[in-house]
Write a protein that binds this DNA or RNA. Structure first.
Lengths: 231, 231
DNA sequence: CCGTTGTTGCGCAATCGCTTT
DNA sequence: TAAAGCGATTGCGCAACAACG
């Protein structure tokens, strides 16, 4: 079991790394264009999604609120709900080598967005709105109750397996993206150093020339003065 | 077991120092110091680790080999095993804002070090060595059988909860790191543009001065010629 | 509207690296 | 010196969405 496991993993990893993004060149700048959307909205909860078995999940509710270290009080409780903020990258055929990959997350700031998202989730959560009158009940299913796929159903396993594949693919893509960003940052840094050196050199040259010019100027003025005197 | 452990650790350390990708440039400022280790070894399998319950995992073995689309044949089988390459960042209090965070992955360049690790893995894998005679069985436990923590034991839940907290923390850190890298890349890019502009300006200035100087030169020579003539 | 693929947070298990015993 | 303990990482599967088609 595990041997196969490792073997297959190695194969996948090797193949992945073989892809070898030779982005080393990428000439000068580029990157400016940032076709990134941002900040999706939370959307509602009541949608049980098509792939939900008997919901006998392994969440193991209790025992989750003591936060051992002083990690800043965070990480204490197991939050719930996820994926409220997305970034909608890709969506054009898996373009990884396309430059605009830097601004991955739309909320480059606080890292608190997740928790914020959760809060937001709890704030405007449930149904359409508590302020609006309930829509005609004949047009919406309160509990959509799509399909309660049993855990051992073939359909369920098929869906799970497909999703697992998608997940692996997506994570590989994310990893590549991060690596590219890192490479790019390093490259940019080196480029920066080169440019700084060039600027230093140019500045020195300029200073030299300016000095020469001013000396000529003085010299010429002296000459003129001499001529005036001799006049 | 632990002997091999330490031995492999040394090997790993050596490999790390051998790899050292960006030894080429990067001399100037920061970023050069790469406190990132790399190349962990896989270590053995039979060790149930201290935190392993009845192993009634939800792996759900079968049904896992059809790879629907043409995703490149990868992502087909459910691999197993993980964490072959580590980087051992942090380890100083969670420093995130310190610059040296770019080289997250230790294999920024050829990505061959990973393969090397894997190879190493397959080369010296299983037990102490197939070539050595088995050590006195009284001194080593074949299946260490640390503790078969039951899934519902308090100890198990405590460990799980602690690990969950650590995982959340680690992932937050990773996310912050990625975001910082992106920010940094963007900032570097802007800086690059600024430097480019400066270079353009300096070059123009230099050209102008050079022209002026050459003109003065010509003028002075003409003057000299005139004087000579009038002489 | 429904089904499929892509993302993402989370928990689990395996391991690693380091400290303590 | 070896083993135990513990936090940190990471691959993986699951479930809930999100985005398309």
């Amino acid at each position: 079991l595990t041997i196969m496991h490792r073997g297959l993993y190695l194969v996948r990893l090797a193949l992945w790394q073989m892809s070898d993004p030779q982005s080393s060149v990428m000439d000068e700048c580029t990157l400016s264009s940032l076709p990134f959307s941002s900040l999706n909205h939370p959307s509602f909860h009541g949608t049980p999604s098509a792939l939900t078995p008997d919901s006998s999940g392994s969440t193991l509710g209790p025992l989750s609120s003591h936060a051992p270290q002083g990690d800043g009080l965070l990480y204490g409780q197991p939050p719930g709900l996820q994926g409220v903020v997305r970034m909608d990258t890709d969506r054009m055929g898996g373009q990884i080598m396309g430059y605009p990959y830097l601004p991955y997350s739309p909320c480059l700031s606080g890292a608190a967005s997740d928790r914020a998202a959760h809060v937001l989730h709890q704030v405007c959560p449930r149904e359409f709105s508590p302020f609006l009158p309930p829509p005609p009940p004949g047009l919406l299913r309160q509990p959509p109750q799509k399909k309660s796929l049993s855990k051992d159903s073939m359909e369920y396993r098929l869906r799970r397996e497909r999703n697992n594949i998608a997940v692996r693919k997506s994570r590989d893509k994310a990893k590549r993206r991060v690596q590219l960003t890192q490479q790019r940052a390093i490259q940019l840094q080196e480029e920066n150093h080169g440019l700084q050196a060039l600027i230093t050199q140019l500045t020195q040259e300029l200073d030299t020339l300016k000095q020469i010019l001013s000396q000529r100027h003085l010299q010429r003025r002296d000459n003129n003065l001499a001529e005036d005197e001799s006049y």
